[in-house]
Write a protein that binds this DNA or RNA. Structure first.
Length: 474
DNA sequence: ATGTAC
């Protein structure tokens, strides 16, 4: 296995060898790099062989083993150079992501009411594996939801149109093709829309513990000791089913197109192919499903919060997706080209001046929401101009696992995790002891180190640190 | 991550 060479303290390079078309670039310090040895190096080298890849296969500081592409992997493809789209390169939970809402309420007031608030959120926000407490949706209404995403949810009374302005693409992924989403995928969403799910998904009430960048914090509406709400969830069973079905189709398409795959899990289709176009249409519909889901959950969280604090004015900071392939213009070798950027377990992080940013954020860059593991800090960062050049405007998405779910269940009993969190003054409500075990903080990398490396390598810059107060888990 | 399966 090839070892990367050091470009700088935080950037390492895998030379293109054999079938690799481009280098691999790894954003990490020595300790995070050591975590990636083997699995991530190999997967990155594999991604670098795919047709039409531009510049390099990238690993963010939180990268770890994934299906085909590493989680924390970024790859951009030029459709005019035979570029491909890969369902495994987007991931199973399509458009899983984080949204943060600002409440304007001081942490001491929440501290005094935290048990009441935790109970209310737990009661009002459906969560857990296979929950059937979400919306009934089918037929043409389903089509509209898949076509319009967050906009559909706001039209149904969940939240306000000002929420949409603070969501990527205004809350609606364009180019969605609801017809490319199978009946089976639709059925899996039955009574699941407006539910949190399980695994690493959560709803947290967090206090702003530290501000690193006053200017950006002001633009983002963040004040030290104020409370925010963060929601981490995705497209539920629908996105999972879309991924499953298109991976199968892409295995066949790759063979038809005679694309040499170093790993079957990298199955893909040329962007300019029927399979590629159908997947993109279905994936965008699944993005809309995730955006609608987070919009509904925001509304439920808002209602609960305002029941306890009627004077709260809860507004959107931003909503970022973690698992997507997006069509974007990027400067490359002195000209602007249209690329299809896969971000799998990676966050879009557009720098200052980008035309897609809401007016309030244009000067400071896109809010980049970094979810910590349970009980640990989360961070708010901002996109940078440098990041546009080195990572197609992408950054890390969270801590990243270091231990498998199975190992974690063995090592950390759920009861022990609850006790641990309570000692840290975190009010936790969960539907599953096993889920708590799987998500034990010790099973994850140190999010602060991941954020530090992201900052030092200019992928994004630190704006604020968040400390959890209440955690609702599936 | 996910109706722990074709």
């Amino acid at each position: 296995m090839q070892k990367p060479t050091r470009v700088s303290s935080y950037i390492h390079r895998l030379e293109p060898e054999g079938p690799m078309r481009v280098p691999g670039f790894i954003f990490a310090d020595d300790e995070l790099l050591a975590d990636m040895e083997g699995d991530v190096f190999r997967q990155l080298a594999n991604v670098a062989t795919l047709p039409g890849i531009v510049h390099g296969a990238l690993a963010m500081p939180d990268a770890h083993l994934g299906y085909g592409f590493p989680i924390g992997g970024v790859g951009a493809f030029d459709p005019h150079q035979g570029g491909i789209v890969s369902a495994g390169g987007v991931g199973f939970d399509i458009a899983c992501g984080v949204r943060t809402l600002v409440t304007g309420i001081h942490k001491d007031r929440v501290l005094a009411e935290r048990k009441t608030l935790a109970d209310l959120l737990y009661q009002n926000v459906p969560a857990g594996l296979g929950t059937k407490k979400g919306l009934k949706i089918s037929g043409r209404d389903m089509d509209r939801m898949l076509a319009q995403g967050g906009k559909w949810a706001v039209g149904r009374g969940y939240g306000t149109s000002s929420d949409l302005k603070k969501t990527e693409e205004g809350g609606t992924a364009s180019g969605a093709d609801p017809l490319a989403v199978s009946d089976k995928a639709r059925k899996r969403l039955d009574r699941e829309l407006g539910t949190l799910g399980s695994g690493n998904h959560y709803l947290e009430v967090q206090a702003i513990q530290e501000i690193f960048d006053d200017n950006a914090a002001q633009a983002f509406g963040l004040r030290k000791d104020d409370v925010v709400i963060s929601i981490h969830c995705g497209s539920r069973g629908l996105g999972h089913q879309v991924a499953t079905e298109y991976i199968r189709l892409m295995v066949q398409e790759s063979a038809r197109q005679k694309i040499r795959l170093p790993d079957r899990d990298l199955a893909c289709a040329p962007i300019f192919s029927d399979t590629g176009q159908q997947y993109l249409g279905a994936m965008r519909a699944a993005i809309n499903c995730a955006l609608a889901n987070r919009q509904i959950l925001s509304h439920l969280a808002r209602e609960s919060f305002e029941t306890v604090f009627p004077d709260a004015r809860i507004s959107m900071l931003y909503d970022v997706c973690h698992n997507t392939c997006r069509e974007e213009d990027h400067e490359f070798q002195g000209r602007s080209i249209r690329l299809f950027v896969h971000r799998k377990g990676a966050t879009r992080a557009f720098g200052p001046g980008h035309p897609d940013l809401p007016a309030e954020y244009v000067q400071v860059g896109q809010p980049v929401l970094i979810g910590g593991s349970m009980g640990t800090s989360s961070y708010i960062m901002a996109g940078t101009l440098e990041g546009m050049g080195i990572s197609f405007g992408s950054a890390c998405h969270g801590a990243g696992r270091v231990m498998s779910r199975k190992q974690a269940v063995k090592k950390y009993p759920g009861r022990q995790v609850i006790d641990h969190l309570q000692k840290m003054n975190i009010e936790v409500r969960s539907h599953s002891f096993k889920g708590l075990s799987e998500e034990a903080p010790e099973a994850y990398k140190d999010v602060s180190r991941v954020v530090e490396v992201s900052h030092n390598s200019s992928l994004a810059r630190k704006v604020a640190k968040l400390k959890p107060m209440i955690c609702i888990k599936g």
